[in-house]
Design a protein around this nucleic acid. Sequence first.
DNA 1: GCCCGAAGGACCC
DNA 2: CGCCAGGGTCCTTCGTAA
Length: 436
Amino acid sequence: MLDAAENTSLLRRLAGPSTGKAGLAKDQTEINRIIAEASKGSPFYENERKKDEQVTRRIEVLLKKREELAKAADIAKLEANAERLIAELEATRDLSQIICHVDMDAFYSSVEVLDNPELADKAFAVTGGGVLSTASYEARKWGVRSGMATFIAKKLCPDLICVAHHFPRYIEMSKAVMSVMRKYDSNMASWGLDEAYLNLTQYCAAHNLTAEACVAQMREEVHRETKLTCSAGIAPNKMLAKICSDRNKPNGQYYLAPDRDSVMTFTHDLSIRKIPGIGRVTERVIESVGIKTCGDIYTHRAAISMLDKELGLKSLLRAYLGIASNVVEPWARESTKSVGSERTFKTISDTGRLLEKLDEIAETLESDLEHGGWCGRTITLRYKLDTFQSFTRAKTMDRYVKSKQDLFAVSTLPHPRCRYDPFHGIDGDSRWAKSL
DNA sequence: GCCCGAAGGACCC
DNA sequence: CGCCAGGGTCCTTCGTAA
């Protein structure tokens, strides 16, 4: 049985990663209950429960360690350690750049509305593979979120309209959007299909524009050219700009003045969950030592200093200070580290059928590799069981490979350390071959 | 101590 | 009736080899 605290964290976990990130619906507790109710007893639910329990254990260990260390702790020394780091970080603070983060509003949904105006103002979602890629703002009012299983979204919003995704269209519209924005910064960094970072310092200076006027103009131009709206954040660095772009969503912008006071005021009451890189798990861990906002980081600097290895003092202090990178560079082709292909399918226990599936995946991966001109030395096979447990088996070669035959051969190699070898041992349901 | 490979996870869109 | 993706990056831990 679950105790009350565990139940709360599990309900929050089941609600999915996007909860709390943007535009919260009215009664999240009720929504979480419906979600848990709908998935109760399913293998997915059980897997989530196990993972949640593991986090609970991790937190217990952490708190125990804190207790132990606290006995002999020299608070003054720990605080001095934090202060020294703060001073060090403060010396790197750079407020000279105008950084902007642009985020398209419910991008996939908005493109669907363009192509089918009847969808406007309707509660609908773009689906693919049993989960939602995006929910329209109307649907979000019901607690429907991206990443949510379709059948659960239907429970929350019985009249939800589900539309299959049209990726080629999104790519096309993304290109149109990006080409407008690139006029404002030729070094713009696009982040996925619907986000971008820009450094507007030069453009503003050259056109004698304030940052806010510049961004308003750019957003209007994007709208004029594509009929799509976006939201933007303007701040001295990428982390702050990203958080700001969420403030006045949809179709809005938020300006954070480039002075230390404004930044410190901004971060003071900011939930740690808003920091990019802090997700559901890390939020729980950090919250367990009493930290909910970036301001709390300073209050608890001694404890964090003590638990530096577990919590990462430096990165938390950066969040507290609102200090982050302000370097905006275009995505470089060389920066690709891996390319992969994965497919989820109904449980297969028959080895022959499993190998056929793997063959199909190897084939798509081969064509992707061919298309991009890639090849790799490390082949990773990832497979997921019907319990939602997933495993990875990797093999590094002494040569680069790219052919389907090689991918297939390496993927099916027996692995000595493998507990559930999908092709030579206990049954399992397999997924992708990946290469580097 | 350091590098590398392997496995597992957290996180992002 | 059942039913929870697919594309990635980065980080940590551990074992083995040099």
